[in-house]
Design a binder for these strands. Structure first.
Lengths: 149, 149
DNA sequence: ATGTATGCAAACGGTTTGCACGGTC
DNA sequence: GACCGTGCAAACCGTTTGCATACAT
């Protein structure tokens, strides 16, 4: 998943755009590339700052529009963060998130025994399921230590 | 949990406020009472509109401040909603949430086999865990039907 | 040539804040 | 009486939108 070469994933990206009739622009490619490279679940602002190094004239509106578009197309994911600005990640396999309430760092983790669990009967007749996330919140180790000082 | 009489829960509330040195005001009592009565995970605005019927002079700032305060004190919970305004619920036992991406309705559900699961080893050394939520998102039955029309 | 995507700037909605007054303890 | 909590108004931040231009197809 996350181990495919970047150029392969960019080629996939272009194909999926064509399938959906989305134009392949300079800006979209760089935004997607930046998200592929990122491991820190960046905010819109963070993606903007990074892409700006390659495309100094890009506007943050375009980053907002592009990230929303790619999320609607299922090519990237928006993280379930309750507070603060929206954060995104590329689609890199099944995993869940740990979120620090103090520094807002987001860390991936795996939980195979959960993934294997059958969905509870209660949700069967609710409707169409699109996302199933576990979000664990708390204070990360680093922030815990800083607090003691 | 949710089955205790309202006056008992309000008495508990007053006690917990005293323990924490929080003043027991008219506004705080009514905001908490409204959240106890609610089953729809109301937004700040919704709580404001309801409490306003009893206290017409209340301001929405107070509702914001009170809900944030009660959440920090662990007396109520803020729901993990990624998009849109913050939503709250009273502390009424272990459960999880279904969220409709179209109408934004939030529904509680239980998942005992998940609750019984041992936490994955990966999170052991992360830090202090405060919340462990499952958020299932999608389109509720009602919205699915409306879409077909 | 067509129509979508972009950049700019202005508007927007939810939320937070500074301040003086009012209420609780 | 001391001090926290409140209401008011203004500021704030992330995000969205209308518009004219630029670009991909």
């Amino acid at each position: 998943m996350g181990c495919l070469a970047v150029h392969t994933r960019l080629a996939d990206f272009e194909n999926r755009c064509r399938e959906k009739g989305l134009k392949i622009t300079h800006q979209r490619l760089e935004i997607y590339r930046e998200l592929l490279a990122a491991t820190d679940h960046p905010s819109v602002e963070a993606v903007f700052q990074r892409v700006r190094k390659r495309i100094p004239t890009i506007s943050i509106d375009t980053v907002y529009r592009t990230l929303a578009l790619l999320e609607q197309s299922g090519m990237i994911h928006r993280i379930q963060t309750a507070e603060g600005p929206a954060r995104y990640e590329s689609d890199h396999g099944l995993h869940h998130h740990l979120i620090c309430n103090r520094c807002h760092e987001v860390v991936d983790f795996n939980w195979e025994s959960f993934d294997a669990l059958a969905p509870p009967p209660a949700i069967k007749d609710w409707g169409l399921i699109q996302g199933k996330n576990i979000v664990i919140t708390g204070i990360c180790q680093q922030c815990c230590e800083q607090q003691l000082k």
